[in-house]
Amino acid sequence: MKTFSSSPFMPGRRTALAALASLAAGGALAQARPAAVRIGYQKSSTLIAVLKLQGALERAFAPLGLAPSWHEFTSGLPLLEALNLDNIDLSADVADTVPVFAQAAGARLTFVAQEAPSPSAQAILVRADSPLRSVADLKGRRVGFAKAAGVHYLLIAALDQAGLSFRDIEPAYLAPADGRAAFERGAIDAWVVWDPFLAAAQRQSGARVLADGTGLASYQRYYLAGTGFARAHPEVLGVLYAELEKTGRWVKAHPKEAAALLAPFWGLDAAIVEQANSRRSYAVREATRERLSEQQRIADAFLAEKLLPRRVDALDVDLYKPPGA
């Protein structure tokens, strides 16, 4: 009959105990490792970029046992698609138009915060030697811009004011990098873009502003969360909101330091970054239904131009209320 020793010094017993200890240690490490908060951002997401570069969210989330996980996107629409598909938890600032397209696709969004208007931080540009002198001159011309970006609505609003419609131009949907290349080689007649790309084109190639958003498009940017995540983790939204608010004030109060920090991250001269930042409010505030009023005008304008598949109720969203608001 086979017998088993109960001695703890038998080799088999020692190996088993070592394995169990190793597994226990691994489990403790796994429990100690911070859970990830997945944050989507664009290169031009200024306040999130500052938070990332300064490590501020790592410090702010640490007491919650959390750490940010960073995910870069080339434009706002795929960013919100990822949010809706639960591939990220939080979205850095996107232009006011982007949520409208996401809602039309059935996304459920929670508005965490809003940046106050910055209408001059986006503009319709033409080359310095262009014969185009007014928005009305865009009729029949090829105009480049990023689809669903804030500049998309600016273009619609500017055309409408000039007595034109979207059908009067030839649109070219281009991400900023592709738009800049097409603009400089003359493949498009005008380019509609936002800062810091706007400031870079002005300073580096002498691009001329045909019209900016003043009196046409407020250009308010929004920070969003997946609704499921927002309802489950309001404490995370509270930390993010407080850090965004603080960082917005710091950027405006320290323009040169902020420009020096962002310049290598954006691959731009500090002077360009400082000019771009001077046109953005960076005033982070609560997103209220009253402050969302322009969202419905944006949605209706896109619907009128048959750029949305259905009517969108722009106020059919969840709104986060920060502590003390």
Rank of each mutant, 00 (worst) to 15 (best):
259 A>E: 07
275 Q>E: 15
262 L>F: 09
209 V>K: 05
232 A>M: 12
281 S>K: 10
276 A>L: 12
257 E>W: 10
268 L>M: 11
293 S>C: 01
269 D>R: 11
286 E>M: 11
258 A>G: 06
214 T>C: 09
282 Y>C: 05
264 P>L: 03
278 S>P: 04
271 A>T: 04
290 E>H: 02
222 Y>H: 08
236 V>G: 06
264 P>Y: 07
233 H>Q: 15
249 R>P: 11
219 Y>I: 03
264 P>M: 04
272 I>S: 02
215 G>I: 13
280 R>G: 07
261 L>M: 13
227 T>W: 08
258 A>H: 10
233 H>E: 15
231 R>F: 02
285 R>M: 03
276 A>H: 06
271 A>S: 13
225 A>M: 05
272 I>M: 01
272 I>Q: 01
219 Y>T: 01
270 A>W: 09
224 L>R: 03
289 R>V: 02
215 G>T: 12
241 Y>C: 03
253 A>C: 09
273 V>M: 03
288 T>C: 02
279 R>C: 07
265 F>Q: 13
250 W>P: 04
291 R>D: 02
266 W>K: 00
243 E>H: 12
248 G>C: 14
216 L>W: 09
221 R>T: 13
249 R>W: 08
244 L>G: 12
235 E>H: 11
212 D>K: 03
284 V>L: 08
245 E>W: 02
260 A>N: 14
271 A>E: 14
273 V>A: 04
206 G>W: 05
241 Y>A: 03
227 T>F: 08
275 Q>V: 00
238 G>K: 09
264 P>K: 07
263 A>T: 06
254 H>Y: 03
291 R>C: 02
293 S>P: 02
255 P>Q: 13
269 D>M: 01
220 Q>M: 11
268 L>S: 01
263 A>G: 03
207 A>I: 15
245 E>A: 10
208 R>E: 07
239 V>W: 05
243 E>V: 06
210 L>V: 00
247 T>A: 12
224 L>N: 01
236 V>S: 06
234 P>Y: 13
274 E>Y: 05
283 A>M: 03
244 L>T: 10
266 W>Y: 15
246 K>W: 07
234 P>K: 13
282 Y>K: 14
260 A>P: 04
265 F>E: 15
242 A>C: 07
246 K>V: 12
206 G>C: 08
288 T>H: 00
206 G>L: 11
241 Y>P: 02
251 V>K: 12
212 D>T: 10
256 K>R: 15
247 T>W: 11
231 R>W: 11
258 A>L: 14
284 V>P: 10
238 G>Y: 04
295 Q>A: 13
247 T>C: 05
212 D>N: 15
216 L>Y: 07
238 G>V: 05
268 L>D: 04
240 L>A: 07
286 E>S: 06
293 S>L: 12
210 L>S: 11
254 H>I: 09
250 W>I: 12
225 A>S: 10
279 R>F: 13
212 D>P: 07
263 A>H: 05
269 D>V: 03
280 R>P: 00
242 A>T: 05
224 L>D: 01
281 S>T: 07
222 Y>P: 02
